[in-house]
Each structure stands twice: as structure tokens, then as C-alpha cells.
Design a binder for these strands. Sequence first.
RNA 1: GGGCGUUUAGCUCAGUUGGAAGAGUGCUUGGUUUGCAACCAAGAUGUCGUGGGUUCAAAUCCCACAACGUCCA
Length: 949
Amino acid sequence: MGLPPIDLAVFHNAGFERRQCRITQLWFWTTDKNRDTCGDTPEDEYTFIGAPLIKGFDMRGKALKDAMREAFLNFFEDVQHTRIEPYPVLARWRDDIHLTIASIADFQPHVTSGQVEPPANPLTISQPCIRLTDVDAVGRSGRHLTTFEMMAHHVFNRPDDGKMYYWMEECVQYCHQLMTDTFSIPVDEISYVENPWCGGGNAGAAVEVIVGGLELATLVFMNLEEHPEGDIELKGDFYREMPLQIIDTGYGLERFCWAAAGTPTIYEAIYPESVSWLKDLSGFSTVTSKWPELDLDTLLGEMSRLNGIMNIEPGVDADELQTTFLRRLAERGIEVTVEQFSSITEPLAKIYAIPDHLHALTNMLGDGLVPSNAKAGYLARMLARRTLRMRDDLGLAISLPELAKHHIDVNLGGQSMKQTHDGLLEVLRLEEERYGEMIRKGGNVIVTQLKDLPKETEIIPDEILFQLNDSHGLAPDMVVTLAKNAGWNNVLIRTGFAAEMAERHARMAKQAAQSVESNTLIESPQHLPATIPLYYEDVQQRDFDASVLATLPLLGDDIPDGATHGIILDKTCFYPEGGGQEGDYGSLFTDSKRVKVLDTQKVGNLVVHLTDGSFETGALVHGNLDWARRKQLMDHHTAVHIVGGAARRVLGPHIYQAGANKSVESGRLDITHFRRLDRDDLDAIESLANEVLGKVQRTEKIELNRKDADKKYGFDLYQGGAPKGNSIRILRIADHDIQACGGTHHDEPGQIGSIRLVRSAAVQDGVERLHIVAGKAALDYARRQDEILRTTSKLYGVPQHELPKTSERFYNEWKEQRKTIEQLEAEIVRLRTSGGGSDTTVIDGVRIAIMEVSGDLKKMTKMLKELTLDKSNPTLAVLGSREGGGKLMIAVTEDTVANERYNAVELLRTIAPHINGGGGGRPTLAQGGGSNADGLDDALAAARSNVGL
RNA sequence: GGGCGUUUAGCUCAGUUGGAAGAGUGCUUGGUUUGCAACCAAGAUGUCGUGGGUUCAAAUCCCACAACGUCCA
């Protein structure tokens, strides 16, 4: 069974009829007797271009958005909805997505699963969203955006508990009233299309609101969940009703603005100042003035109308699309040539896309994101680089920070940000610097990669393009530009290459997804009650009594040496590994038996003690913690929080925890920052952290439900990752650091003693790893360092403070002496071979030098140079050394009678067997070695006889 | 989280099948000229990222680590 028709009184009262779309086959409601399409089909054009369908909103840009948003929110406030402030665009309360992609994302997963109460019910919100999936189409079509605001009214009904606020009838009623009253949209222009929605395991009926060919809103009635025995079938899957029934609506703010402005594209409606500014900067009028007969507004208007019905999606072949476009424009009486079309649309697409990209970028950075080469930070870098490329293509002489500053002034005036404006502009300045560096290097890389290709080459091999893109960040069209600059004038990108590259990336992503697997520690235990944690109530407690609920065999190969059993108790003060803090060690015992706890882990809501022995179920055991270990772990854990707070204070509001680990030896904290830290930064953070130890008397541990926690402290709470349940445990170190954290912490920070920042390392671009030692570990560390200095200082026989100077002197002297030795060795060879010494003979104008020397192949090479590089003295030299089983080296002077007469390789082959060796080389230089140094005399003798001595 | 690339003189980078460590630029000295990023000659500068391995022989092949870069999710 599918879903029943959506048959509402509101439709009938307003004179709507239910029809089936001739093209999509979907059912829709309309008052227009002549309409036989649902409105969102390839045959439905935008009717609002040049003829706005929303009346009473004559402003443009930010003012228009503000007015539209207010009108929407006010309308719903008037009908008993609570207005909720928008969430950040970085979805930090979630670990499955980086960016807020819809207003409902604010409430996923905990509110939508029913675990957590919504902040208000029903509620209304206008949520800034970022979606990068269509980034390629932005600017090229008249309507795609990466950043948009989703206006919404949400309801969370629980009919089983008698909490039913409203459902379809009222929802559509509100929507219809908003459309017709607040926005004065003619009823004839509205279609309500029935199109069930499903995704992520949920589904429900849905109504799309189409106005003038544009989908303005979607109303989703999510009341179904996927279930194999469900009796409702949608698109091949089975669903059943769920207790929580959610209305999820989405009204595209920018689309409302467009319908109110009736501009040729959506960009002119929402970013008019930016568009005209960029047109001026790029000299766009000089392009259009070439063809005064073209009416640009009409052309763009017609294009937008066509855009609505011709899908410009990533991967669509550009040439083919252009041909179709020109044909359809001609059908409408607009004659443009290919040249006119591309000279107008190419720069224009960039002029449109830049403000959109800047909007997304400034919002992301404003939320404190740091650009990076991985994770969410990469998304920001990608946008920054796309913007820079478009800027360069347009030939704009303006920096990225200047572009952003203009955008902020014009389009984001007054919006509060977490990151400071100066910080944001600094981040962009650094991004631009990196981009410039990449282009500069790219020029070199391209010349190297293409150097084997003839200059008249047209097609660059796919493999080279893939590699340049993936490894060097040079997109194919950049490669073409740079290659042309370097002299390959005919290169172009072959048709279909972009699609193939996308396919290749998709394949790689698929492979990567397959390689993820998880292993389990124990067999899922049968309905045991959650272990009661004693480690929160009293972090100092190290002894306890408990009864054994189960002893299970351990599975998998990720278990400590000697561990054989997993013991589950009714309560414990052993902390299980979590939040980056390692598990506790210790022992469990009865009067007659003692087992070691080698690690503690959490499985579901059970604490599993990994032990080297077992107990009977029901046994009463006494537990004893390895307190030194726990104390050290707590030192490091609390220290990590303090250092995080100190880093934020010192470096700026964008400092966010990207990961952490606390072991006995040290603590590790990964923080987001846009440049490498130097020792001065570390010192500043370290000093502040130690100050906090002295100043803050007590840490505060608070337990709140999620709704209140979010409200009171915001999403920076979730730096350690998004917690699962409704109850949030919060650690507060005065105003220094406030975080949700399930670890064990000191009540008094002073107990840590001292904190040292040992060093920092780069985990990835934009993420710095701080290595921290605290408490006893700090002391141990200092002692180890001291020991190293003492040993070294004893070795050199100088006081510790002289060590750097002495090392430098020793190193320089070593270098000098090495050079001197080389020169002396060469001198010895010269002396032995000059003046007719016994080691040399002359045969028919070729000097023959056969002798034993000392040294390895490298030294012998130097000697050979002395003997054979002088072309005025043709020489055959055979050197032998007893080092390492015997070495032989033979050279003849190149381009002389010597190499005409003698072949070094052949000679080597005949004499090498005497030292049980082999070798090879070129006819003028051969080298070899063996395992019988005693045979060296024979080898040299063989060489002599070979040349006739 | 996954993939790929790079690391050689102060700088920018070559280095082919494993067999003598290279170019340009900069530097020093001398000459020539002082208006060009001037010209000529000679010279100095190297832990070929670090540590292992294979080999008679490693900048080159293999492994680990590190730093840097880059693409994708």
C-alpha cells in the first residue's frame, strides 16, 4: 500500500482541483482550468521574470532578504510559533555532516529521534545553509546557490502522548495563507504537488509548492520509519508509522526574493551591489558594448527561463548544452552567435558565482572554521580557491580579503560572528598566499610533466591531467592556461574528460568506503543493567565493592597481552576508555582470588573490565584502582582542557579541539589554527595554562539535559565530539574552558602541579597538535631532558650552556677535516703516479696505473678523477682496495686513445673473479666488489698481465 | 577518514636502465664597464629529508618515520 491522496479542505475551499501531471505523472492541485502540468517540468517556464509574482517587496539585496525573512517569521509568530535563532552553518553538534544543509539538520539526530525535547514547539526559524553539491552550476544557471537560507516552521507531534499540535490540514492552510495574504501571490500561479519524500530511513507525505514554475517551498510530513514489516511501500522500501510525527518545511528565502524582484537571475535579486561592483571592476560593459543591438536583460531573462527547464548540472557536456541553448534562444527570436554567447555568459557566470561563494566562505569562517587540506576545512579552501580562480579569469586586480570585506560590508552588515573580522581577513590573506604559491609551483610542474611532449601537441594525456589535478591542485583548465604560457599553444581539454575525472574520484571514494570495518570486544551481553559509574561522584575513590554480573570471553585481536576475560560488575570506579582518556588498570579480588585489570572499555552502557582471570557470576569482589596511573591520566586530561582554553585565549576564537588523547606518558591536543605555531606561541599558551592552575580553585561539574546545555553554553560545548544521549556532562574551569566531557577530572586544578607544552606538530594543514606533559609526567620529562644534556655535556667535556656552540664548532671542524682528507688522499695518488713511480708505466702513449689503495668506493672515485680526467694524459687506472671484502675500480680517460684501446667493464669482468666478486659500469668507468680481499694481489696481477705488463 | 605527489647547492629546480653530484640564479675573487636583473673569466658552496633494508655499488629500488603540498569523502 502506498500513501493516500492528500485531500484537504483548504484546497477545496480555495477552489483547487486535483489533477495528474501530463509529464511527471504526479498529482497536483491547481485553480487554473487550463493547466495540465504540475509546474515543475521541462515545459514550465519561469513566469515571474520581469513580472514579479510577489508584491510589496521593492527593495533588493540584503534589505530584501531581511524584509522577506521578517515577513515570514512574523507570520508564524502570529500563529503561535516560537522564533528560534539560527544555528551555526558548521554543524558541530553532529558527527555525520560538516555543514548545516537544512533547517531540520538543527534538530537531528536527537530531537527527530524523540530523545531530546525541541527548543520550542511549534517553532519557526530561518536557517542559513550551505550545500556544495551543486557548486559547479552556481552562476552558470540563473538559480543555483551554495548558500541559502531555509525558512521553516517545524512541529514535533506525539499523538500517543496526546501532544498533537497540527498536521497537514493546518500546515497547508498556514502555507496557503502566507502565499496569498503576506506575499499576495495570485492563486492561479500556485500548484501544490503531491510528491512523497523519503531519506535516511524516514519517509512521509510531502507537498511541493510551485509558483511561476519555481519551487518555492516543500512541506514534508515525516511520520514513517523504515521497517521490514511495515505496511506502507514507498519507492521499493517498507515503512510503518512512528510515535514522533514531524512537520519539516523548507521555504527558500532567496527564491522568494527572486520571485519578488523578477530579475533575470536570482543573483541580481540577492547580491545586486556585488554584481554591479564586479561588473564595473571587470569592465563587463566593454564586452557588451561591442554588440549594442543585443538587449542584455531580455537575453538573460530568456536564458534564466530556459535555465529553469534545462538542467545545468555538473557533468553535463558544456558544448552540447550551449548548442541547445542557442537553438532554443533562436526559437524565441533572440539571435546570438556562439562568440557573443560565450563572451557574455562566461564572465557573467563568474560575476554571479563570486558573491555566492564569498557568502558561504565568510559564513563558514565567521563560525570559526579554519581552512585546511582535509575535512570541513577543505570545503572552505575549495571555495576560496574557486573564488580566486574566477577572480583571475575575470582579471580583477583585487585581493581576496578585499573581496570578502566588500561582501561583508554589503551583504552581512551587522551580523555577529564568532571569528573577528580581522581574523577572518587574515585567514583569507594566508589562503591567497598559498594559492599564489600553488600556481607558481604549478608552472614549474607543468613544464616538467610536459617536457617530453612536442610543442604542437593538442591533447595532454589523461594520466598527466589526473596527476596534476589530484597531486598538485591544478584543475584541467588551469593546466591548459599554464601550458599555453609555457609554449604549448595548441593544447585543449578533450571532450568528456571532466566526466571521467569525476567518475574516477567517485570510484576512489567507493573503494575507501569499503575498507572501513569495526571489531567487537565481547559478545553482546544479554540484558544486563547499565553499570553504575562511581568515578564521577568521587574522582578520588580508588576502592569499591561490587558484584559480578557476567564474565565473558574476549573477542577480536585488539586486546591487551594476557587479557582473557571481560568482567561486568553492577558498579565500578574503573573509568572505561572514552573521550580520549585511556581506561583504568588495577585489580579485582576476593578473599581467595585476585585478577589483574589490564584495561577498561565501554560496550554500550556496560563497563567491561579486561582481566587475566574470571569470577563466578554473583561473586562479591573488591576493586582496587592503579591510582598512580589514574592520577596521571586525570592530570593530563584536565591539563588538556586548560591548555585548550589557554590556546583559545592566546590565538583567537577559531581555536577548536580537533581531537585529543590522554595517556600516562603525555596528553595530546589537536587544535584548529591557520598557521604553524612557534615556540613563542607555545610559551604564551604554557604560561597562561600554568596561571590558571594557580588561579582557579575548583572545577565545576554540571549535568544538564541537551536542550538546556545547548541554550546555556552553545555548540562549542561539543569540541570533544557529539555526545549521544540527552544528558550532557559538562566540565567548567571557571570561564577558561567549558566543554561537554565524560572523562574524570580533578576537582582542584592545583593538584596537577605544572603543565609543560613539549612541542607542536602539524597533523594536517590547519590543525596543530600540542604535546602536553603534566604532573609527575612533567617532572619525569624534565629529568629525561636533563639527563640528555648531562650525558652530552660530559661527552664533549663542556658545561651545558656551551653545548650548542661546541656542537656547531665540532660539526664545522668535521666538515673541514673531511675535505682536507679528501685533498690529501688525492695528493697521495698524484705523488704515487707522477714522475714515473713504480705504480705507472706508459704503453704507446697511454699511462697505465695499477695499484692498491685504501678506502671505499667513494674515496677511490676521487682518486680516479685525479688520474683520468685530464685528457692531455690518456690513462688507464686500476685501483684495488681491501675494504669490505675487496673493491675494484677501473677508469679510462674519455675521448682519448685510452678508451679506444681499453674497456673498463671488460677488464673488470676478467679480474673480479679473483676476489669472488662482480660488478659493472660504463666502458670508461667500472666498479665492483667481492668477498675475498686476499685475492686482491692476484686481481691486480691479472690486470697487469691483461694489458701486457 | 582515504588517495596521490614532493623533499638534491642560499634560492628555483634537472638528474634517463642503480655505476664520476648537475643547470640557472645568487655568492667570492679578478677583469671589463658603471644606464638596463650588464659582460667575461676563475672559484667556493651538498648529511641528495631521517632511519633501516636489498646490492659489489643507492639521490635512484624496497620498508618505516618526518616535513611540506594536493585531491576526494
